[in-house]
Simulated assay, not measured.
Amino acid sequence: MSGGGPNGAGRQTIRFCRADDGTRIAYATVGSGPPLLKAANWLTHLDLEWMSPVWSHWLGGLARNRQLIRYDERGCGLSDRAVPSFTFDDWVDDLESVVEATGLDRFPLLGVSQGGAVAVAYAARRPERVSRLILAGAYARGRQVRAQDETEREEADLDLDLARVGWIHQDPSFLRVFASQFLPEGTPGDWEEFSDFQRRTTSPANGVRFLEEFARIDVSDIAHRVECPTLIIHSRDDGRVPASQASELASLIPDSRLVLLKSRNHLLTAFEPAWDEFLSHIDAFLAE
Rank of each mutant, 00 (worst) to 15 (best):
T151A: 13
T13A: 00
E193D: 14
R264G: 09
W50N: 11
R146F: 02
F16A: 00
D72M: 05
A215T: 15
R125D: 09
A223S: 09
E96I: 05
G115W: 02
G166A: 05
A287E: 14
V83A: 04
I217E: 02
L231T: 12
G10E: 04
R143H: 12
L59R: 09
E100D: 12
R129T: 08
S56C: 13
Y139D: 00
F86A: 10
F107G: 10
F88H: 10
S244L: 13
D196P: 01
Y71E: 01
A156E: 04
R66E: 09
L268M: 00
D157A: 13
G61P: 15
Q144S: 12
G103I: 08
R64M: 03
G166W: 11
D105P: 03
A156P: 07
D237M: 08
D238A: 03
C228Q: 13
E288D: 13
F107Y: 15
E128H: 15
L160K: 07
L37C: 08
V118W: 06
N265Q: 04
T13I: 05
D221C: 03
P242A: 08
A9P: 09
P53Q: 06
L43G: 02
S85R: 15
T151S: 12
F210T: 07
T102D: 05
L158C: 04
V83I: 13
D196S: 12
L36P: 02
S52T: 00
M51V: 11
V208D: 01
D171P: 01
R199L: 11
E73K: 15
R64E: 14
A138Y: 04
V30I: 13
T151G: 10
L286G: 04
G4P: 00
T23A: 05
E248V: 10
L59S: 03
R66Y: 11
D149K: 08
G116K: 09
A136T: 14
F86L: 10
S244T: 14
A40T: 15
A138S: 13
R74G: 02
A124C: 09
L37P: 04
G142S: 09
A19Q: 06
V226D: 07
Q181H: 10
G61N: 11
P188N: 04
Q181L: 07
P53N: 12
D80L: 01
S173G: 03
R11M: 02
R125K: 15
S203G: 05
P184Y: 14
T269N: 02
V165T: 12
W191A: 08
R153Q: 14
Q198A: 05
V145E: 10
R70G: 00
L46R: 07
Q148N: 10
Q114E: 11
N65P: 11
L231P: 13
G137N: 02
